[in-house]
Design a protein around this nucleic acid. Structure first.
Lengths: 117, 117
DNA sequence: GGTCTACATTGACGTCTATCGATTCACTCT
DNA sequence: AGAGTGAATCGATAGACGTCAATGTAGACC
């Protein structure tokens, strides 16, 4: 439960001098951080998490009209969430007649998953 | 690159009948989805991603005054982001004199990491 | 006590987000 | 052509978010 901390207490600096120099830096670049943040943002909603969950286990098998009643929101809202996932690259869509079949792109979450490891 | 889709084309339903019954359901509960979404939301910002990244590799070794100059935002903004991470349970803090030492709670991201696997 | 320092909080601002009703689009079938 | 259906888009609205300047707070040192 508790974390083993080896604190590195600072010295009080002389008045007027600049504050602590940064001694450590992120190992992820700003560009990487932007990508990771973008994927996380796409997943930052319970509905989108459940959408990805369903689509991952049933790729291309589910049309939007089956997804909509799973949530207590209106159809345009589900459509909006799917668009967010689409624009983040997390899912793709294939239209077949009247219906739209979504599927997840496993590559999209890979970087985030590995960074979290 | 392309995904192997086995579509399940729907039949046009008789007029007046309700739309497709949902045949599949999420395997994550709404409560799980809320937790996963909350963790993802905490990571849905490049600065917070980099903060977590630094703190994970230097737990308790870095004070806020070292973190601040890593980003092009003012000190209160860094403080705000740390608060977001704190309230999501991703990081904890230990104060020592004037300084505040943050560290990540590895448990917090575990559920998201495993769900993404 | 008084001053300086590290960090947090407040309040304000502009922007983004989730949601809905209404509408539009694309397709199917008669 | 016309009607009906699945899904996307539009427009509006309420709330959340990221940012900063200003202020507050608590500890350190003289």
């Amino acid at each position: 439960m508790s974390v083993d901390l080896t604190l590195a207490p600072k010295q009080k600096r002389p008045p007027g001098e600049p504050c602590c120099e940064p001694l450590v830096h992120p190992s992820v670049s700003p560009a990487e951080a932007r990508r990771l943040g973008a994927v996380a943002k796409a997943l930052a909603d319970p509905i989108r998490v459940q959408l990805v969950d369903v689509l991952r286990r049933h790729p291309g098998k589910v049309c939007v009209c089956e997804l909509t009643p799973l949530f207590e929101v209106a159809q345009p809202t589900v459509s909006h969430h799917l668009k967010v996932l689409r624009e983040a690259g997390l899912v793709g869509v294939e239209r077949k007649g009247l219906w739209a079949y979504y599927y997840v792109n496993p590559e999209a979450t890979k970087e985030l998953q590995q960074w979290l490891r």
